[in-house]
Design a protein around this nucleic acid. Structure first.
Lengths: 352, 352
DNA sequence: CTGTTAGCGCATTCAA
DNA sequence: TTGAATGCGCTAACAG
C-alpha cells in the first residue's frame, strides 16, 4: 500500500455522510483502534511506517476525534467553558475578551447557553455547571451568575456576579464607584432632580449602584426623593414601565440614571415616544457601555465597565488556576469610567 | 485520605467537589442506575413511590446528567452548535441572532471556537464539524466558513460563506448590491478618485465586493484606476499597509471603500496618524456594520449586513431542516443597506 | 511494536 | 416493577 498524500487523488472525505469513527479508520488502515489512538495522540510504541500509513488514512478520511467521546474518557479536555444565561450584548463582550485571553494558550473555548429557558430557575449556573464541568470542560467562567455558592472540583471564575461576596474567584466592575461617577456627572451638570431606574433588588450589583446613587446625593448635600426611584429590574420592559412612571410624576426628574444600558436605552425610547428631547428635556445615563449604547439616538452617555477586559482577566485567572496556582484565586475589581456621549447635558434653564 | 462519599445521611449536595454521577444517585437511593435513568427521562415502568424517592435524592444531591455522556449515548441531543473561527464582532452578532431564534424552541446553543488556532488550516470548519456533529450537536451553523463542500449526516447551514456556490443551505448578505450601494454613495457625494482596500482574494465575498466597486464605476462612466486597489485581506494589519500605500500615492484617493469594517477602522487609524481629517480630507466607508463601527471617531459610514438576522434565519432554517423539512434547504440572500454616519462627505473643493 | 481488555456516564434492551 | 447487561467512541492499562 502506498503512503500518505497519494490518496489526494480521490480525496473524498466522509463518503456518503455519517461521521467517521476511529473504528472505520482502523478498519480502513488494517490496524486496531488502539493503534490509531496512539498515532493520533503521538504516543510512543508505533513504528514510523504504520504511523505514517495511519496518518494517511486519517487525513484521507478526514477523521477528527469526537470531542464528546474523548471528553468522556479523559480527565483533561483542554476546553474552557463560558456559561451564559443568554447571548446578549454583555455576555458576548465577555466572550470577546475570553477569546483574547485564550489565544495561544492551547485551549479551546465553548460558550454554552440554555436558550432562554433560564428564568425558570434562578440557579441556572449550577445546572449548567453540573452538565459540563468535569466532562466537557476543564474549567468554567460564569457570566453574571445569580448565585455563587457553588462548589465544584474544577476551577470556576465568576464575572460580574450579581450576588454578594462569594467563595468563588471573581472579576467585577466597581459598581459603587461607577454609580458615583454617573450621578456625579449629572450633578455636575446642574441636575438636582435625578431619577433612577433601579436594577433587580435581589442582586448585589443593583444594590451597589443604588447605593452609589444615594451616596452621590449625600455628598452633594442633596436629599433623595424616594419617588424618583423606580424598579427597572435590569430589563427593557420593566424599565419602560419605570420610565413612564417617572416621567408622569407631577415634578418629573430632569435626568435619569439607569442601572444598566438596557434600561437606559428603554428610557430613551420612552422619552422619544413622549415627545421629550434628549438631552434637551431629559438627560439619560446608563451603566455598562455595551457597544450598542453608541448606536442609540442620541448616543448614550454611560458608565463603562471594561467588559472585554473582565472576560480576558477571568480566563487568565482560570488558566492560572488550572495551572495549579491556588494563589491566583482572588476577587478582582476593575475600575469603571465615565463615557460621555450625547444623552446628557445641563438641565434646560426655563421650565414651567 | 479517603474522600469517599459519606454524604449518605447528611444530604449536602456534592460534598467537597467531584461531580455527582448517576451511580452516586443510585447508590444513595438504593436502586439501580437504570431505574434512576428511567425516572430522569420519565419512562414508564417505575412505581410512583420509587420515582418520587429517587427524584428527591436527585434534587437533594443536585444531580444533573452529564451532557457529554448523554450525547455519546443518544442520537438526539437537542443542542445546536454555532461554529466560529473566533469570537469577534461579526460572529458574536450572529450569535445574538441565533439566540433570538433558539428561544422557546427547546434547543440549547453551544458556540464553539478553537481559540485562534485557526489560521493554521483553512478548513477549520471541517475539523470542528467532525468533532461535534453527530455527538455533541444535532446540527450546526458555520459562521464565515472558507469552504463549504462539507457533507455530513446532520444538517448544516452556512452564514456568510466566503466561498462560492456551495452544496450547503446558506444565509448571506448581498455583497454585490452592498458594494454598489457603498461606492454609489461615494460617487454621489462627488468623489471620482475612490480607493478600495480589498478583501482576501480567495474568498468570493471579497471578489463580489470588488466587482460591485467596478460595476459602480462603470455605471457612472468612470474608469477604474488599478493603482487605487490595495490588498487588505479583511484584517487590520494588512489593511493598514494598504491604507498607507493608497495615501502615499502621488495622486491619492479622496475616498476609500474598505471591504469590511475592520479594514475601514484601520484606514481611519492610518488617516489620523497621517494628520488627515475624516471626512474633510478623506471619506471612508466600510462593510458589515458591526456595532463597533459606531464607536470610531468619526463614526463609520458603512454598508450594513443584517448580521443578527442572518444568525436568526440560519438557526430557523436549521430548525426546520431538523424537523425534516428538506424543502427548507435554500440559499438565502438578505439585502444590504447603507448606514450613513460621519466618515463620508463631499470631497473638499480646494485641492492642490 | 501491536492488539486485547476495560471503563468513562448514561439510556436502552431484555430477563428476572 | 426492577436490575443486569450492552454499547456509544475513545484512551490507557496490560498482554502478546
Amino acid at each position: 500500500m502506498d503512503l500518505d498524500q497519494q490518496a489526494g487523488a480521490t480525496g473524498l472525505p466522509a463518503p456518503g455522510g455519517g461521521r467517521v469513527t476511529m473504528q472505520q479508520v482502523a478498519a480502513e488502515a488494517g490496524v486496531s483502534v488502539s493503534t490509531v489512538s496512539k498515532v493520533l495522540n503521538g504516543r510512543y510504541g508505533v513504528s514510523p511506517a504504520t504511523s505514517e500509513h495511519v496518518m494517511g488514512v486519517i487525513t484521507r478520511l478526514g477523521y477528527e476525534a469526537s470531542l464528546v467521546a474523548r471528553s468522556l474518557r479523559n480527565r483533561r479536555t483542554n476546553v474552557i467553558g463560558v456559561l451564559v444565561a443568554d447571548f446578549e450584548p454583555f455576555s458576548t463582550e465577555v466572550l470577546k475578551g475570553a477569546a483574547d485571553a485564550i489565544r495561544g494558550s492551547g485551549f479551546e473555548l465553548v460558550a454554552y447557553s440554555a436558550g432562554g429557558r433560564v428564568d425558570e430557575h434562578v440557579g441556572w449556573e449550577r445546572r449548567y455547571l453540573s452538565r459540563v464541568m468535569g466532562t466537557l470542560v476543564d474549567g468554567a467562567v460564569l457570566v453574571t451568575p445569580t448565585v455563587t455558592d457553588v462548589q465544584y472540583d474544577g476551577p470556576v471564575v465568576a464575572v460580574d456576579p450579581h450576588t454578594g461576596r462569594s467563595s468563588l474567584p471573581t472579576v467585577a466592575g466597581d459598581n459603587l464607584q461607577g454609580a458615583r461617577l454617573g450621578v456625579d456627572h449629572l450633578l455636575g451638570l446642574g441636575h438636582t432632580r435625578i431619577g433612577m431606574v433601579t436594577g433587580r433588588p435581589d442582586l448585589v450589583s443593583a444594590q451597589l449602584r443604588e447605593r452609589g446613587y444615594r451616596e452621590a446625593h449625600a455628598a452633594a448635600g442633596l436629599v433623595v426623593d424616594e419617588d424618583l426611584l423606580a424598579l427597572g429590574a435590569f430589563e427593557a420592559e420593566q424599565a419602560r414601565v419605570a420610565a413612564h412612571h417617572l416621567l408622569s410624576l407631577p415634578d418629573p426628574p430632569t435626568a435619569v440614571f439607569a442601572a444598566n444600558d438596557r434600561s437606559a436605552l428603554a428610557v430613551l425610547e420612552v422619552a422619544a415616544e413622549r415627545g421629550l428631547e434628549v438631552p434637551g428635556d431629559l438627560s439619560v445615563i446608563g451603566f455598562d457601555n455595551v457597544p450598542e449604547s453608541a448606536l442609540s439616538d442620541p448616543p448614550l452617555t454611560t458608565v463603562e465597565q471594561p467588559i472585554r477586559r473582565m472576560g480576558h482577566d477571568a480566563v487568565a485567572l482560570l488558566l492560572s488556576l488550572l495551572d495549579g496556582d491556588e494563589a491566583a484565586a482572588t476577587q478582582l475589581t476593575l475600575p469603571t469610567t465615565l463615557v460621555t456621549r450625547r444623552s446628557t447635558a445641563a438641565p434646560s434653564t426655563s421650565r414651567d
